[in-house]
């Protein structure tokens, strides 16, 4: 962890200003993405994991806005670009988007332009970032389509998304995210909409390309099975904050945060005991009604009565580099009223 990370998020707050009130989708997110490794961001729906990915590229939809915090991007260990200081539509931001940081999305059905050929959608990206000729962009597109395992790429170049299967489309998405050789790939639940077999193939493909290109991957998912397959490090998020961050072994074998532990108890294991699976009690609170103190306390099985309702824990770092935000591990500040 001594090496400069690729991306550092510091106290990032992204809020959505709706007619009904302010939704604090991210409420002080702090973590870093190391170079060349795979970081999985996990959590239930609504915990802010997708918004984190989009905040990094400054493509949060209206009425959402980054209101506080910094996103530091280090293209090389000695350079620093503060992404939050760039205007979302500026030229420099656009160079980072798609060029330095690629992104692939959950819905391969709807995330590709419906009436443009896949060839055009990829080669357009290459041309913007690399400034190559049309013919060269076309050649590179064909190479990429071949690389992600699309048969007969020369003819598929002219195909429209609706002519491809879900798995094929997701391959196209991957080619689109990687075609400019980014330093970081943000994958926002890329396998959720796919069947299990295709899912495995796509995961292998991402893993393979990552090793080949020595790129970092930030993999956003709620599927702990996927995490086990692909992650080096894991960030567990709850209600717009980081609950725990640790290496993948620690998360699975010795999770510290009660929320992580509850998550682990809720996954079925091969050869495990025949007891019924545990569900986390209660529901994710409504975004307007964030509980006071530690936001997990109403659902926490290890809640310390009289403390967790009022005290907001800090992120505490352990010797192995793990971080946990929980009163069970000491560090705390008084909740501000």
């Amino acid at each position: 962890m001594s090496e400069t990370p690729l991306i550092e998020l510091e106290g990032l707050r992204t809020h959505f200003f709706t007619d009904e009130g302010v939704v604090k989708a991210l409420d002080g997110v702090t973590f870093s993405v190391p170079r060349g490794r795979t970081l999985c961001v996990v959590g239930e729906s609504g915990c802010g994991k997708s918004v984190t990915g989009r905040s990094i590229l400054q493509i949060v939809d209206r009425p959402g806005r980054i209101v506080e915090g910094r996103i530091l991007y280090h293209p090389t260990p000695h350079e620093t670009i503060d992404i939050t200081a760039l205007r979302p539509m500026s030229r420099q931001m656009r160079t980072i988007r798609g060029g330095e940081i690629g992104m692939i999305f959950q819905e391969p059905m709807t995330s590709l332009g419906p009436i443009q050929t896949i060839g055009k959608q990829i080669s357009e990206t290459i041309r913007i970032h690399k400034g190559v000729s049309k013919a060269e962009a076309r050649n590179q597109t064909i190479e990429w389509l071949a690389r992600v395992g699309i048969p007969r790429p020369e003819t598929r170049l002219g195909a429209y998304p609706f002519e491809l299967s879900g798995g094929m489309r997701q391959r196209v998405m991957i080619a689109l995210g990687l075609c400019c050789r980014p330093k970081l790939l943000i994958a926002d639940e890329p396998t959720t909409a796919l069947d299990v077999t295709t899912q495995a193939v796509i995961l292998d493909l991402i893993r393979e390309l990552q090793e080949e290109m020595d790129m970092a991957v930030m993999f956003i998912t709620h599927d702990l099975g996927v995490v086990a397959q692909i992650a080096d490090d894991v960030v567990v998020m709850y209600l717009g904050r980081v609950a725990e961050r640790a290496g993948v072994e620690t998360i699975f074998d010795a999770p510290r945060h009660p929320y992580t532990r509850a998550l682990m108890r809720s996954i079925p294991r091969l050869g495990g005991s025949r007891e019924p699976l545990e569900a986390i009690r209660g529901m994710v609170p409504h975004p307007f009604r964030r509980p006071s103190g530690c936001s997990f306390h109403p659902r926490c099985p290890e809640v310390i009565a009289g403390r967790c309702e009022s005290l907001d824990p800090d992120l505490r770092e352990f010797g192995d580099g793990s971080q946990v935000r929980c009163l069970l591990y000491g560090s705390q500040t008084e909740a501000q009223q």
């Binding site: 009604r289 103190g293 009022s310």
Partner: peptide, 13 residues
């Protein structure tokens, strides 16, 4: 600190 003041919005909503 009473539980009521701990979760002010929940009491009305």
């Amino acid at each position: 600190m009473t539980p009521d003041s701990a979760m002010p919005p929940e009491s009305t909503a």
